[in-house]
Design a protein around this nucleic acid. Structure first.
Lengths: 156, 156
DNA sequence: AAAGATTGAGTTGTCAATCTTA
DNA sequence: TAAGATTGACAACTCAATCTTT
């Protein structure tokens, strides 16, 4: 009475199950509500990058830099930045020394929003970390590092 | 000389890094070329579900069943199924007993495509599994199971 | 009314072509 | 030429409104 199930055409190994679960995630991670604001995941990540890069005296990222940091196309970032600017969270000024570049800087309001969302994320993360055992945290880190390594190797 | 970096607004814990890497994955997993065929990831998953469900004598999935299985909206699956039908891989016949339902069945060609893609996936998975140590495989499985558990708990 | 399927509008991404500046 | 940014056309999703059948 073994092998009663029809061997499906698709793999059913451990990696399959893991990858299927992983694929299903996209959705779960894409909450659009952060700290009561309506912000897409990419916008959240962009605010984080811009806030990180916004050290005093720094020249400000170009859109292409931001695109590289986020792993998005420059065209996507063009529209993303336009949206943040329209909401008054971002200033886009042409670099006078080289007018091909935008220098992206968060406005005061933009920094406030970034801080607010940052607090929200820290809270959520703390809640998750509390719910994971330290063994599970270590496993997650090790396993995903290994998986990314392999995917990147084999993607070339 | 500790704490020289400005504490960013956003969290920078282990979970942050892991989740960022996870988010970045979407892209890597979305290869559109499987066994030489131009097929989207959702179409691949759909072929797998339909092939699995296609046991002899089974009634065939309804579109809503497939949507639930894939974690997609019924509207998305409506257009997805239309595409598979247009390519001759899927037959959509109204259930005579209840004409609200479609009964989705792969055609012979559809089953052949599913088998071909399945072989391709098994090969890729085998290659990945070979590149992971057994310790890493175990960690990946444990870590992601835990993460999904926590995300699902906290999503409610 | 309720459930399955479809359609229309909006979002977020890609890629390819173009504009602008160096 | 080439690099940064923009635009247009497309893909794949969501949500809300509608059509069909029960």
């Amino acid at each position: 009475l073994h092998d009663t199930t029809v061997a499906g055409a698709f793999p059913d190994d451990e990696l399959s199950r893991v990858l299927r679960r992983l694929a299903r995630f996209g959705g779960l991670l894409e909450s659009h509500d952060h700290a009561g604001l309506q912000v897409s995941l990419s916008e959240v990540m962009a605010l984080g990058e811009l806030d990180d890069a916004g050290g005093d005296g720094s020249p400000g990222l170009a859109q292409q830099d931001l695109a590289d940091g986020l792993g998005l196309e420059k065209s996507t970032v063009s529209r993303l930045a336009a949206g943040l600017e329209r909401r008054g969270w971002l200033a886009r000024v042409r670099d006078p020394a080289n007018r091909r570049y935008y220098r992206l800087e968060l406005t005061d309001e933009g920094r406030a929003v970034a801080a607010r969302i940052g607090r929200d994320l820290r809270e959520r993360h703390a809640a998750m970390l509390t719910a994971l055992t330290s063994e599970e945290r270590a496993a997650l880190s090790l396993g995903l590092s290994a998986l990314t390594r392999v995917l990147e190797e084999q993607h070339r």
